[in-house]
Nucleic acid binder design. Structure first.
Lengths: 141, 141
DNA sequence: CTTCTTGCAAACCATTTGCATCATT
DNA sequence: AATGATGCAAATGGTTTGCAAGAAG
């Protein structure tokens, strides 16, 4: 956590931006949660804890966090964005159920390998979060 | 094309829905195009051809086509949906450039294989369009 | 003729933005 | 004190919806 704040501060400084209590609160909220969460989740969590931060500020801070590389923005096909932190979160991909919207995290060596090979051929550069699989989960198939 | 109309008519009948000229026009527009296109594209194409169909009808028809399984709705991370027809369109997946938004279609036996195997393990049922890869294309890497 | 469809405009929902006020460095 | 940041409310952009008028079976 302290580490996260340090990293963020460094990023902010490099851009001549300031570490405000609102930004710190949003950062903490994201790093406290394990999974992916949406802007509204953060807003609610903060409200519950009687911390301040308007919806606009939450969105603005999320943009900064994504830009800093500490957080990734994920589109899980739910019609709005989700965010998850990268630090201390082991690499994984998402399997998304088209019916119930459930998101299953997975990581598969085989797939990684063939994906990397294909990307080498096509000169496509993968990102840390690079893959999404759509289908129907056990309960919805 | 005639085949597509037949299939759609069959679907509509099964749901006690009617084949209107607007629905037929939208269907044709999608099946005339090779790649993925968005609602607005369809609307413009129709306008250019002096065919009628309001934005609302285009969206409503697209929903029907997706439900019928003839068309798939794809989220390419552009902030709005894209649609592409399934019939007579060889199976492929999408690689999406996070910077310029370019979409590269690909199909890779190796990946398919390991993906299928993993899905068997996790009891996840794949759809025809099941995979999306994010990264940076040759020009943006 | 009955039921389903359309077009329009208003509603929606997530996200962004302009601006006056406020806080950090 | 100066530069940035915040909150609010209004704007945006894609998509959906209620409703009166119109068409398909």
């Amino acid at each position: 956590m302290t580490r996260a704040i340090q990293t963020f501060t460094k990023y902010l400084n490099s851009k001549d931006l300031k570490l405000t209590k609102e930004r710190k609160a949003v950062l903490q909220e994201i790093f406290l949660h394990k999974g992916h969460l949406e802007a509204e989740d953060i807003l609610h969590s903060l409200r519950r804890k009687k911390k301040r931060a308007s919806r606009a500020t939450v969105y603005r801070t999320l943009d900064l966090l994504v830009d800093s590389g500490m957080v990734r923005k994920v589109d899980l096909g739910h019609g709005h964005s989700h965010y998850e932190h990268v630090l201390g979160h082991t690499h994984h991909e998402h399997m998304i159920c088209l019916k119930c919207g459930k998101v299953i995290e997975f990581s598969d060596k085989e797939i990684e390998r063939s994906l990397k090979q294909m990307c080498k051929k096509t000169e496509f550069k993968l990102t840390s979060h690079h893959l999404q699989v759509f289908g129907y989960c056990r309960d919805c198939r």
